[in-house]
Structure formats: C-alpha cells, structure tokens
Write a protein that binds this DNA or RNA. Structure first.
Lengths: 345, 345
DNA sequence: GTTAGCACTCATCTCATGCGAGTGCTAATA
DNA sequence: TATTAGCACTCGCATGAGATGAGTGCTAAC
C-alpha cells in the first residue's frame, strides 16, 4: 500500500510528465508548492516507487517517467474528475445547434470538434447498420441484365447493391419480388435479412417467381455481402505532432494502421458501457505501444449504437479527455435519439 | 541545342539518380559501358549541362542531380517508351478477370494494383456523379416529419439525402411529387437537377401540391447540396518509405494533404486527354514540391469519366509509370464500358 | 524521519580532425 | 582540336575528445 506522500509524488510526477514530456527530476518537483519536501526526500520516495514498478528511468542519471503500471494506477486511483469549462461546453453545444438531420454529418462533426478540443485524434465508429431495421425495399432495373437493390432503413440509411438479372425475368416478376420482399423484410434487422431470405421468404418466392434459383444466386449474394461499419476520423494527423512520434518509423506505423479499417475495430471492445482506458501495450496493436486509447459509446434510446475513441500519446491528458468524452458521448446520444426519434418499432 | 554526348550524359545521369537517389559523379558514369568517356570529359559536359540549368549540385564538391528543368527535358525528349512485361500484364488482367459488377470496387482494385506495381501512391478520382443521368427518383417517409430522397442513376449509383417533411403533407402529396419528379427528372444529368427543379418542375409542382413552398425549401436544399467526387487511394503511405520524405515535416505535410479531398482535386487538370506529367513545383501545392504526379483519364464509351494519378518522388521511374498508366487507363475504360454497357440514352 | 552535501553517471553539445568523394583547372596527349 | 591524365582544392560527414549540466544514490548530520 502506498503512503500518502508516495501517492502525492506519483500523481505530481505523472502530471508533470503529461505536461512537459520530459523526465521529471526531484529538484523540479520540490520546487512545486504542492510538494513541501526536499529533493533528497523525493529522491528516496521515487526510488521506492521505481522499485514498486510505477516509475522508470530512461537512463541511470535521468529523471523518472511513469511506467505503464504508473499510468494505470494514475487513471484508476489518482484521476480527479474535472468539470468542463464553459468554453468547452460552448464548443460542444455548437455541434448540435445547427440541428443537422443526417446522422453521419453529426458524427463527422463530433469527430472534428473532439479532435479540436483535445488536440488528439478522434475516431468514431458509425452506427452499426446491421442493427437498423428495413423500412423499405426496392429494386431498380438498369438494363436488361442488371439492377440495383436498395434497402432503406428506419434511420434513413440507404444500402444499395448492384446485381445481375437472370435472363428472361419479366418486369412483373421483379414487381412481385419487390412486393414479397417488402412484406417479409420490413421491420427486420439488417443482420437478420439473410436468414429470413433463406427461410420464410424463400418459400414464398419460389412459389411465385419462375427464375427463382438464378435470381437468388445473384441477388442473394449481393444483399448479404457484409456492410462495413463506417469509421469517422477527426484530426487524423494530429498525433504526428507529438514528440513521441518524431521517430519516422513509429509515425509510419501509426498512419498505416489508421488507414486499415480492420485494425481500427481492434481498438474498441465491443459492447462496453462507460469510459474505458487502454494504456500503451494494453492495446494489442504493436503500432500503438506509445499510445493510449480512451473509448466511450453512444446510444440511441436504450440501444448502444457506436463508439467514440480518442487516441493520444500514453502521456495524454487523461483527465481532460475523460471529461470531454463523457460529456460528448452523452450529448451525441441525445442528439441522435432526437434525430432518429428514439427506438422505432 | 544539346550535342548527342550531352543528351546521353543527361539521360544516364537522370537514370542513375532515379535508381539510387544519390548525386551522380563523373567517375560513376564513366564506369558505365554506355558512356565511353573519361571522368574528365564527363565533368566538362556536366559543367555545361549545369550552366544550361539541367543539372544541379547539392554543394560545391558533390555529384550532380537533375534540376526540375532537367527532369522536364528528360520526360519530354529522352523518355523511351517501354513495353510492359508479361508479369505486369498478368497483374493488370487480374483486376478484370473477376468481372466485378460494381464500378467502385473495380476502381478501388485498380488503385491497389497500380500502387503495388509502381510502389508509389495511386489516386483515382471516381466517376463524376454529376455526369450521370437520373434513372429513378423516389421518396421514402421515415416518420411524420422526415423522409429520404433517393436518386438512382443509370450507372447504378445511388444518391440519398434526408430532409424534413413539412407538417400536414399527405401521403398522396408525396406520391404525386414523386410521380411528377420522375416524369420530369428521368434522363436529366445530375448537375442539371437543380436547374430543372427550379424551372419546369416548379410550375407543375406548384399546381398540384399544397405545401409546395415548404416542401421545396427543405427538399430542394437537400437535393441540390453538392455531390462530392469520390477519391480512391492505393498505397497511401508508400511515399513515406522514400528517402526524400525521411524529413518528418515533409512527410506530415504530404499525409495531411492527402486527407483533404479538396486539395487532391488540385492535382488533376480537368478534362485533359492522354498522359500528363507534373514535376515538383509544377504542382502548385507546396507540400508536393518533391513529388511528381503523372495523370491519365479513363472513359466510358466516348465520355471521359474520371482520372488516375500516380504520385511519386520527383525522381520517380517515369518510364515505367507512364507505361503502366497508359495500359491501365485503357483497360479500366474498357472494363467500365462493359459494366455500364456503354453510353446510355 | 528528513535533509544537506558530495561523488558519480550519463546524455548532449561543441569542436577539432581526418577521410573521401567529387570538382575545376591545366597541361599533356592523340 | 578534342580528349584525357594529373593534381590541388572543396566540402560533407563520421569520429572522438572534452566540457557541461541535470540528475542520481549514498552517507552523515540535523
């Protein structure tokens, strides 16, 4: 168990390092008025903290920097929540003042503002389309052998796929198909479409449509190909300005990673509630070993819709980011609930 | 006018520099069997070429590197076209073998392959949606006060916008509107929609729809907001591996630029035909002063649809890139023409 | 228990030095 | 007259030796 003095010194050390990105020396700390001890005392305490694994030295005669364990302890026990400043509040409000009606634009704007306020990179995972329900289904023939299938969800999202029309399919066949599909699919979650198509609907279609087999082989594939979660970035390159990435290789790895959507989803733990912090190598990605990720999620009505993440260097300003993220995820949830009119039946 | 020997030396110098990214010395050249002159002779010629502005020195006693004027001369007069290797041909064919039916996927894959083959970054400007024609128009109400407007183009592209429904608009009002819009808009270019809406169609709508004014103020804005040209990247971060960008600041500028879609369009000259090369500062963007951009365009039927660009360092392998770009733009044009079935009426 | 003092460590900066690749010029050569 | 060999010179760069200073650990005094 740490003594109060050790707690104080650990906290101040982390705070200083977060601010200046330089190893923290005993003299430097003793000058601060919150720390009424001599450098020698501080040195002793720091040596103990190092032995316990909370602090590290970059070389024998340097100041101390927090270890990952140190950061972990800091965010778990020493992080005093902070009230957002009115200035920040104002900025956040500004996203929602315009009453934008398209969810994607709201999310994009949220990403921007979050990055502006924190000076880190923000990543927002768009609403998981598969949780939306079909509102309307439609097929538009383009030529004698191709057509577009369109699904409109209750959230106003539109999915579309091109597919090949089997030869000899009549216009009335298509009309019938659309009618059947609308009857069957409206209200179904997008991730259930394929299942429904294969079971209930298949029987009906088979009965009415001549070219059923060929139609389904082409159309079924098109409709069931996975919809990707959309990723929105704010300040994608902001991280590069921090001294920890002045190493070109690290910077490269980071940039490359951010351009790979499948990597990004690894940063989020699915279905978590509340704010989560992952420090350094706690993110399984090698490229992220000098980064911390703070995630939150937003909801529409009661349902969890998407996630928000802020990526910064491990010495990021956890306090501020947690405050902002908390605020923002709440406001975003409210706004999206307003737009989408709450959970629909 | 340059002598043959000067031409030879300029050519070989540029070739060497392209390959090794190191200043080229006279001794180095004289060792090559294409250059049967002594270092001293080469030095004299190089001195002349420098005076003429084709070569530069990085410092007094370094070898020579090509100046922008040198590159310009090289690509204009010394670039011997090359036949693509069968290996390259095979790779390129592979994009089209799968007979993907969605244009966007074909373009994305083209971008990937181009970047793989060249080891530079490729940027493809997607088909300009505004040149497409309306195939079908539709409105799907989501709730009592909002709806999605959907435009399907003859190319199978789908545009959609959310908009607010004026209060008290009946279902039959919406149906009428959709009917009128379909009658009026089918076959119209997307970039003409707004004009048509404001003129011919306005009269008709006014006559039939009660809430005409309110509907149009909300709907008109939604439908006329500009559609962006989609940008596809291949190997976005490949450039960072070249030594000319080992300077973090330059790398940063480049990455930042590539994330700004509006900057990207500046790299393309609109409506050009054939292959264009822009060297270093010929690209107006400051971030691109160490880059060259080679652009081509692809067509569907007779109509120009989009552009292809390869971005590399100024010392890029012009010969190879030109060859590949030429081949690829032709093949892509053919493939898209096949998919979209040529120009539609 | 706390602090002052002191010897010690180590990264970093600066400066001198030497090396080598490459040049320009001049004189010799074909 | 065009080409080449020879040579002095330039300059970037790598290397290594101090000097500097921030910071530590340990011991002894308060």
């Amino acid at each position: 168990m740490l003594t109060n003095r050790q707690l104080l010194i650990l906290q101040v050390t982390v705070d200083e390092f977060i601010q200046f990105a330089q190893p923290v020396g005993s003299r430097q700390l003793s000058k601060k008025k919150e720390v009424p001890f001599s450098p020698a005392t501080i040195r002793n305490e720091m040596a103990d903290l190092e032995e316990l694994g909370y602090l590290e030295k970059t070389h024998t005669s340097s100041g101390r920097i927090p270890s990952e364990k140190g950061y972990r302890f800091y965010v778990d026990h020493l992080l005093i929540p902070q009230l957002a400043t009115t200035e920040d509040m104002k900025q956040i409000q500004s996203v929602f003042k315009e009453r934008i009606s398209e969810t994607e634009k709201v999310i994009q704007k949220t990403a921007m503002i979050l990055s502006e306020l924190t000076s880190y990179t923000s990543i927002l995972l768009g609403p998981d389309v598969r949780k939306h329900r079909v509102k309307r289904f439609s097929i538009v023939p383009l030529s004698s052998d191709s057509a577009v299938a369109i699904i409109i969800t209750d959230s106003g999202h539109v999915e579309n796929r091109l597919f090949q029309l089997p030869e000899g399919l009549t216009t009335s066949d298509i009309e019938k198909t659309v009618n059947i599909l609308n009857e069957q699919l409206v209200g179904v979650h997008l991730h259930d479409i394929q299942r429904v198509l294969e079971k209930e609907t298949a029987v009906l279609l088979k009965r009415h449509i001549g070219r059923y087999g060929e139609l389904m082989s082409s159309f079924g594939v098109a409709i069931s190909s996975p919809q990707e979660e959309k990723v929105f970035y704010g300040g994608k390159t902001k991280l590069l300005h921090y001294p920890e990435f002045s190493d070109l290789h690290k910077a490269q790895g980071l940039i490359t990673m951010m351009d790979q959507a499948n990597q990004i989803s690894k940063l989020f733990s699915p279905n978590q509630v509340g704010i989560h912090i992952r420090i350094g190598s706690e993110n399984t990605l090698l490229e992220m070993e000098d980064c911390s990720v703070i995630t939150a999620s937003y909801t529409v009505g009661e349902e969890q819709m998407g996630s928000i993440a802020i990526i910064g260097p491990t010495r990021m300003d956890y306090r501020r980011v947690v405050t902002l993220l908390d605020l923002m995820s709440g406001d975003l949830s409210r706004e999206l609930t307003r737009i989408l009119g709450g959970p629909r039946s």
